[in-house]
C-alpha cells in the first residue's frame, strides 16, 4: 500500500523540478548575455564565444526536460491521490464486511470490493511504471548537468584569457557555474525524494 505521504513526495519532486526550470531559464538568459559580450569582445573572447551556444542548448534542453519531469511528477501525485481514495473505499468495504457480517444483504458488497481491489492493482502497476520512468528521466537530466559542470570550468579558463573582457566574462562564468550547481541540487533533492517514494512502494507492495 502506498503511504499517505506518497502524493506529497511526488508533489515535492514536481516543485523541485519547477525550481530547476526557473534556474534553467536564468541560465538561458546568462547564455544569451555571454553570447553578446563575447561577440563584442571579438578575437579576445573567441574561445568563450564558442561555448556560449553549448550553454544555450543546455539551458533549453534542461527547461524542456525539467518541465516534462515536473508534469510527470504532478501526474504521479494525482495517481497516488486516486490510489489513496480507492484504498480508502476498500478499507471501508472491508470494515463493513466484518462489522455487519450478519446483515441480510452483506454479500452485495463483495462485487464492489472485488472491482475496487482490481482497480487498486491497476493503479499500483501504473504507479510503479511511472516512478520508474521518472527515475530514468531524472538520471538523464542529471547527466546533462554534469556536462554543464565541465562547460562551466572551460568557460572560466576562457574568461581568464579574454583580456579587457575578463572581469565581465568571469562573472558570467560564475553565474553559469552557480546555475548548474543549483539545478544539480534540485535534481539531487528530487532523486532523494524519489528513492523515499520507491522505498515506500517496495515496503508496502
Amino acid at each position: 500500500m502506498a503511504k499517505t505521504e506518497t502524493y506529497v513526495l511526488a508533489a515535492k519532486i514536481a516543485a523541485h523540478l519547477h525550481y530547476a526550470t526557473k534556474v534553467a531559464e536564468q541560465l538561458s538568459l546568462t547564455a544569451k548575455n555571454a553570447h553578446a559580450v563575447s561577440a563584442r569582445a571579438g578575437q579576445q573572447a573567441s574561445g568563450f564565444r564558442a561555448i556560449t551556444s553549448f550553454i544555450e542548448d543546455l539551458a533549453s534542453t534542461t527547461i524542456t526536460q525539467a518541465s516534462l519531469i515536473s508534469n510527470n511528477a504532478v501526474n504521479i501525485s494525482m495517481l497516488a491521490t486516486n490510489r489513496e481514495r480507492t484504498n480508502r473505499a476498500l478499507q471501508h468495504f472491508l470494515k463493513v464486511r466484518r462489522s455487519a457480517h450478519d446483515a441480510a444483504h452483506i454479500q452485495s458488497i463483495d462485487g464492489p470490493t472485488a472491482i475496487t481491489q482490481k482497480q487498486l492493482r491497476q493503479l499500483d502497476e501504473a504507479f510503479r511504471d511511472q516512478l520508474w520512468q521518472l527515475e530514468l528521466q531524472l538520471e538523464e537530466t542529471q547527466q546533462q548537468i554534469r556536462a554543464a559542470a565541465i562547460i562551466s570550468s572551460t568557460s572560466k579558463v576562457e574568461a581568464s584569457q579574454a583580456g579587457s573582457f575578463k572581469p565581465q566574462l568571469e562573472v558570467i562564468a560564475t553565474n553559469i557555474a552557480n546555475a548548474a550547481d543549483q539545478i544539480k541540487q534540485h535534481l539531487q533533492s528530487a532523486q532523494q525524494l524519489l528513492v523515499e517514494a520507491t522505498d515506500d512502494l517496495h515496503h508496502h507492495y
Binding site: 468495504f93 441480510a104 452483506i106
Partner: peptide, 8 residues
Amino acid sequence: LAAVLREV
C-alpha cells in the same frame, strides 16, 4: 453502508 445493507 452497514445500516443500509441490513435493509437493501
